[in-house]
């Protein structure tokens, strides 16, 4: 028999309001959808809870709709397998469909949800270990310890955000809708994250992610990631790129994951025009990504390799979007 899970009770609300009430009613309550992240965390002693609020019974979270601006609203409870297969997402927001298809393995995606992936815990080679492993290392700053083994001089946790969906949504300019005891609020997805591996989500107690709102897509997009095992793994680094055609040329929205404690929007305002030297343009893009990211020793793969590969990957994806050979 496997190591017994800690004692908790499951509550199964059937509407968002009931879920918020259940979360607000118990300070240590945790929300759970597909459970592919939190159940593992509970088993490894990376999280404790007395109340697990199962969100899978809330039909409203599983809906997708056309937005008021002609964009799209995807409920937080929509599974990644559904996102991967939805023709409308594949056609209008290809990076999002590609990112969904690149999360873990197909069996995880059957139950894993958009909201769950957006709220994915940060990961680190000193954190995602068994209880005895971490105990023998005196735990770490992220949980139960006082030192970050990645950067012992620093005073914050460096664990890396490893979700694939966030960069794809950010490249498409998504906003996130959050419901809580004080009502609902919306903010740009990039503002939902903090550069702190131990507290990377701007989610207050009792709040849950309800939906992602996408504006109409202007151009094309794609997502690519590097990982240890091609069929099933978290990103060592991942990048989503979306083009924005304009009168002054094509601009690129670039969002990166796996390199920092939060997913990053890379500032690269240059426009590609008919007169641009494409090679110089994409070399500058590559430099901008290299400068923006700060991978740490949070995986078994060297930070420098991840920095170089994510920037090369960005240029490759961006070139592909405008029909240039990698």
């Amino acid at each position: 028999m496997t190591e017994v899970l800690p004692q908790f009770k499951i509550v199964t609300p059937d509407c968002v309001e009931a879920a918020i009430a259940a979360l607000a009613g118990a300070p240590d309550a945790r929300a759970c959808a597909g459970g592919t992240d939190i159940v593992v965390a509970l088993r490894k002693g990376l999280s404790e809870t007395g109340t697990l609020v199962d969100l899978t019974g809330i039909a409203a979270l599983r809906e997708t709709a056309t937005g008021a601006d002609g964009g799209m609203v995807i409920g937080a409870g929509v599974t990644l397998a559904a996102i991967e297969r939805m023709p409308e997402i594949g056609e209008r927001y290809p990076a999002i469909a590609r990112a969904a298809a690149a999360v873990a393995g197909p069996t995880h995606r059957e139950v894993a949800t958009l909201g769950g992936n957006l709220c994915l815990d940060t990961r680190c080679v000193y954190y995602n270990q068994s209880h005895w492993w971490r105990k023998s290392n005196d735990f770490c700053l992220k949980y139960r310890g006082d030192t970050c083994h990645v950067a012992p001089q620093g005073n914050r946790c460096r664990a890396a955000f490893s979700g694939d969906m966030a960069p794809a949504l950010m490249a498409h300019g998504a906003e996130i809708e959050i419901a809580g005891p004080d009502g609902t609020r919306r903010l740009p997805l990039a503002e939902f994250y903090h550069e702190d591996g131990a507290a990377h989500l701007a989610l207050n107690p009792g709040e849950i992610v309800v939906a992602a709102h996408l504006p109409p897509a202007g151009g094309v997009s794609d997502y690519a990631k590097i990982r240890v095992r091609g069929a099933i793994d978290f990103p060592l680094a991942g990048v989503a790129v979306a083009t924005e055609p304009g009168s002054a040329g094509t601009t690129f929205r670039i969002a990166v994951t796996g390199t920092n404690s939060k997913p990053l929007l890379v500032d690269f305002p240059d426009a590609l025009t008919g007169e641009s030297n494409a090679d110089a343009f994409f070399a500058a893009m590559q430099k901008a990504v290299q400068k923006a990211v700060s991978p740490q020793r949070t995986t078994t793969i060297a930070p420098h390799y991840r920095r170089l590969s994510v920037s090369a990957l960005t240029a490759r994806v961006a070139r592909g979007l405008v029909g240039l050979a990698a």
Binding site: I10, G35, T36, V39, E110
Partner: peptide, 27 residues
């Protein structure tokens, strides 16, 4: 693997594959 990484524990729930080591029986 005991952590949803290897697929050895796959069973079908309502006809779809599911990792039984990260699935709560009550669900």
């Amino acid at each position: 693997c005991d952590g949803g990484e290897c697929g050895a524990c796959t069973v079908l729930v309502n006809g779809r594959p599911r990792l039984s080591c990260v699935t709560l029986a009550a669900s």
